[in-house]
Design a protein around this nucleic acid. Structure first.
Lengths: 253, 253
DNA sequence: ACTTGGTAGACTGTCTACCAAGTGCCATCC
DNA sequence: GGATGGCACTTGGTAGACAGTCTACCAAGT
């Protein structure tokens, strides 16, 4: 079964380098579980038993409990007192609400990013746009999706607002999870919009940047709905055991 | 010492009435600790020791640990591995960032509230405005502050977006904590703005509602800065033990 | 056929005890 | 005075125990 690697995988930060801070076990467990939820190893609605997970991951109950509680707070699982945790089953209107929240958060981030952007930031953004477009044109969906994530993440970081960063990161991860069962579409349009967005930021035009980001998110929401409507009955049907649902393609947001 | 009351205090919901679901201890501990942080019983920067808190609250280490971890995730305390938790000491730019995040969240909420408002909602909003203004004019600051909170809370609820509600609630609580050491100002202007906001919502004018909320928050931020500058050296000085800092007045946001 | 009552098993929530490792502090030493 | 070493304290994690509660199932009664 999946066993936790206690290895610390901090991103390299310039300047002071903390020699080594062994990641708390609960953190690793948290990461492992979200991973398993996202990739479908732990299916939606499944009852998660503490000792079972503990056994899987080779740790004791305590770290698992703590991880589960965090997952509960962030909406990945639902904790029913006296019974246990179930992997969250998203309601149909939930994606809509997530995207609305994301629109607000990221559009504000874009506004602030436009306000604070440095030459260096803009260069990085442009580079990401180029790379992403290249990935898209060469048909490398995974690469395009990854670059898309990096671009959005960089923009929120550029806002210089840690709360926006935190919230947006949380929402983004959830969105990506829900999107998983959807086919990849609207790749080209997405990168055109990214270009416009980056242009607005580089010009320091706050309103235009915010507006561009909002429209970008809005288009994503529309695309999701269209797909939902297209293979609606397919997805609306009760989950069959025979559908492993692992690692489907992701939409380019 | 503060002892936990395990009493459940659910808000009354119409229709099905769940008899009684005993709150998990960790939840009560969490509530108790935030309470103590907000009201200043646990001063900023104070070192929190698990066994000590457990003794205070009459529970074992376990629920305390779990509560502390949640507090850490939400930014109320900083957890230093191997040493313990310290009550978070806000950086000066933090309030700014919180208010910026709040501006984004609540302004979007106002937009959606304007979109979805029912006759009933509008009536409640207007009532709150009236009550709040009355409180303000009669000099009942606590009442005005409470009503202000209820108004903002109702608006986010009206957005119908659970994520906006959650995030806004989190931010709001933090904001209220940081504000505590600030004097009450701008009461009259605040309620004038509320009136304009409610009017926009009742007319279903999304853009106007969003704009009104944004300006409202922005004014609050300015007011905070002015006060900060006014008695700047006072607050900037290192905390003296002699300053109990309990229950100071709150600004009307 | 439907409800009621009872029983059994499974899990969580919480407590206690314990140990290893990391951290901060203080006295000591050069 | 500044480095050093050691000590007390605290967390992080493990193990085991136990009560309360939740689910499911079965049997009897209506």
């Amino acid at each position: 079964m999946t066993t936790i690697s206690t290895g610390t995988s901090d991103p390299v930060s310039p300047g002071v380098r903390h020699v080594k801070r062994p990641t708390p076990l609960r953190e690793s467990v948290y990461e492992a579980l979200t991973e398993m939820i996202i990739d479908g190893t732990l299916e939606r609605g499944r009852h998660l038993v503490e000792v079972e997970l503990a056994g899987m991951l080779g740790v004791s109950r305590q770290p698992v409990r703590e991880a589960l509680q965090r997952l509960n707070n962030e909406g990945w699982v639902d904790l029913r007192p006296g019974f246990g945790a179930m992997v969250h089953v998203p309601a149909e209107d939930e994606v809509d609400q997530l995207l609305a929240a994301r629109a607000a958060l990221e559009s504000e981030s874009a506004r602030l990013a436009a306000r604070h952007a440095t030459k260096d930031d803009v260069a990085k953004l442009k580079e990401l746009c180029k790379v992403g477009t290249a990935y898209h044109e060469s048909g490398d969906i995974d690469g395009a999706v990854r670059t898309n994530g990096e671009l959005h993440s960089l923009i929120t970081q550029m806002s210089g607002n840690r709360f926006l960063v935190d919230f947006a990161a949380q929402v983004d991860r959830r969105v990506r999870w829900y999107y998983t069962p959807v086919a990849p579409v609207r790749g080209a349009a997405s990168w055109r919009e990214h270009n416009r967005l980056v242009k607005a930021i580089s010009e320091g035009d706050e309103d235009k940047a915010a507006q561009a980001m909002r429209e970008h998110t809005e288009h994503t929401r529309k695309a999701y709905h269209d797909l939902q409507a297209a293979n609606g009955s397919d997805e609306a049907a009760p989950e069959t055991e025979a559908t492993p649902r692992r690692r489907r393609r992701t939409i380019t947001s």
